[in-house]
Structures are given as structure tokens and as C-alpha cells.
Simulated scan of single mutants.
Amino acid sequence: MAASENEPLTSAFREVMAGVATPVTVVTAMDGRRPHGTTVSAFASLSMQPPMVLIALDRRSELLALIKSSLRFGVNVLGHGQSALALAFARKGGAGRFTGVSWEVDGGVPRLSAAPGWLACEVADVVEGGDHVVALGNVLAAQAAKGAPLTYHARAFGTHVALA
């Protein structure tokens, strides 16, 4: 099917997915002593035994290439009020994303100090999926702090509010 013939489906799919609230994370990896990271909303828990997560990255992503070679990645789960941080790591051109951001190496990968959720992962497998690649990660370390999550829904940042 030609791309133009598929446009109605692509448009409808994009609209359906905009209606799905997703968590906002910054996925990180190290290149020697230099940190790399990008904003990722394609993130989910995969398994409890053993603890595993999955992330999806564009197959052209520099971060994906680094994760494939280092076999490690960090997942910094952002909290409500951290949309500026999410936007900073989402912009094109990775240079300078860590400028002014407090971080440290934890479990061999960059950990953003202000992120309320943290996972250090080792790559278990990578799976091709269309224009993205899914990295399955065994969780090596995890830490959580209280607070409302940052979510992305209807092309806007927000948070989850529990029903009364």
C-alpha cells in the first residue's frame, strides 16, 4: 500500500494514540564519561519476575545505538511539574541536553537527580517493530519517591488524579 493510500489509517491511528495517557520518562545511557538521554513516552512494565521494562526508540536514534553497544540504560520517570525537563530532552540535537541538569552515574547510567522514579536496566533483548526498536530491560536497581507523575495525553503534559 502506498503511503498516500495509508494516510487515513495513519491519521486515525495518530488520533487514537493521542487519547492514550502515557508516562513521561527520560531514558539515558553513557558514552564513556559523556551522558546521553532523550524523552520517551513509549515505556511500560513488562514483568515482575524477573523485574523487566520495555522502551521503544526510533531506529535512527543515537541513544538506541549507544544502548545496543553498552547494553545498559536508565529510565528516569518524571514527575508533575517537570514538563520543561521533558521538553529539554525531547529537542533535536542531543548536545547540551544535560546542561544545567543535576545528574549522577548510578548503575552505570545517568540518573537525573530530580526524577521521582528511577530504574537502572541491562538489555535483555531488542525487538524490531516498524520504525522503532523495542529494548527489553532487566531491572538492576529501582527507587521511587512520592509525587504525582508527569503524563502526556492529547498532545499536552498533565498528571494523573485519582477518582474520589
Score class of each variant (00 low, 15 high):
residue 110 P to A: 07
residue 99 T to N: 14
residue 83 S to I: 06
residue 28 T to N: 04
residue 37 G to H: 09
residue 63 L to T: 13
residue 44 A to Y: 08
residue 2 A to C: 02
residue 81 G to Y: 00
residue 80 H to A: 15
residue 119 L to E: 01
residue 16 V to K: 06
residue 11 S to I: 08
residue 45 S to G: 13
residue 122 E to R: 14
residue 50 P to V: 11
residue 97 R to G: 06
residue 107 G to A: 13
residue 6 N to S: 07
residue 111 R to H: 05
residue 130 G to F: 07
residue 59 R to C: 08
residue 34 R to Q: 14
residue 46 L to A: 09
residue 49 Q to R: 15
residue 45 S to K: 08
residue 48 M to G: 01
residue 126 V to T: 15
residue 9 L to K: 07
residue 39 T to S: 08
residue 71 L to A: 13
residue 44 A to H: 04
residue 93 G to C: 05
residue 34 R to H: 13
residue 79 G to I: 08
residue 97 R to V: 05
residue 28 T to Q: 06
residue 117 G to W: 06
residue 42 A to E: 03
residue 75 V to L: 01
residue 131 D to E: 14
residue 131 D to M: 08
residue 24 V to E: 01
residue 113 S to K: 09
residue 111 R to E: 01
residue 11 S to P: 06
residue 95 A to F: 09
residue 12 A to L: 13
residue 129 G to W: 04
residue 41 S to N: 15
residue 33 R to E: 14
residue 108 G to N: 03
residue 25 T to G: 00
residue 18 A to M: 09
residue 49 Q to K: 12
residue 38 T to F: 10
residue 82 Q to I: 03
residue 4 S to Q: 12
residue 125 D to M: 06
residue 117 G to R: 04
residue 95 A to C: 09
residue 63 L to A: 11
residue 3 A to N: 13
residue 122 E to Y: 04
residue 68 K to F: 03
residue 106 D to N: 09
residue 8 P to N: 07
residue 103 W to S: 02
residue 108 G to F: 01
residue 99 T to D: 15
residue 113 S to E: 12
residue 64 L to D: 02
residue 48 M to A: 14
residue 112 L to V: 02
residue 102 S to L: 09
residue 71 L to G: 04
residue 24 V to I: 10
residue 7 E to Y: 11
residue 44 A to W: 06
residue 104 E to S: 12
residue 93 G to E: 07
residue 57 L to Y: 12
residue 13 F to H: 07
residue 54 L to A: 13
residue 111 R to G: 01
residue 51 P to Y: 05
residue 93 G to H: 08
residue 63 L to K: 12
residue 1 M to V: 10
residue 78 L to S: 01
residue 60 R to N: 15
residue 98 F to E: 02
residue 119 L to G: 05
residue 124 A to I: 08
residue 112 L to P: 00
residue 40 V to T: 10
residue 43 F to R: 04
residue 33 R to K: 14
residue 79 G to P: 00
residue 79 G to N: 01
residue 124 A to L: 10
residue 63 L to W: 13
residue 122 E to P: 00
residue 101 V to I: 09
residue 29 A to T: 13
residue 114 A to V: 10
residue 42 A to M: 07
residue 7 E to C: 02
residue 119 L to V: 07
residue 123 V to M: 09
residue 67 I to N: 03
residue 55 I to E: 05
residue 30 M to N: 03
residue 29 A to K: 11
residue 105 V to M: 03
residue 108 G to D: 04
residue 78 L to W: 01
residue 44 A to M: 11
residue 6 N to I: 05
residue 52 M to E: 12
residue 122 E to C: 00
residue 126 V to W: 07
residue 124 A to V: 15
residue 24 V to Y: 02
residue 2 A to D: 12
residue 67 I to P: 00
residue 77 V to K: 01
residue 72 R to V: 09
residue 123 V to T: 14
residue 86 A to G: 06
residue 130 G to E: 02
residue 90 A to F: 08
residue 107 G to W: 09
residue 119 L to W: 02
residue 70 S to Y: 07
residue 132 H to V: 10
residue 89 F to G: 05
residue 6 N to P: 00
residue 34 R to P: 03
residue 12 A to G: 12
residue 112 L to C: 02
residue 74 G to Q: 10
residue 40 V to I: 15
residue 118 W to E: 05
residue 32 G to L: 05
residue 94 G to I: 12
residue 102 S to K: 09
residue 68 K to Y: 03
residue 56 A to P: 01
residue 121 C to T: 08
residue 122 E to A: 10
residue 23 P to T: 14
residue 13 F to D: 05
residue 107 G to T: 10
residue 55 I to R: 04
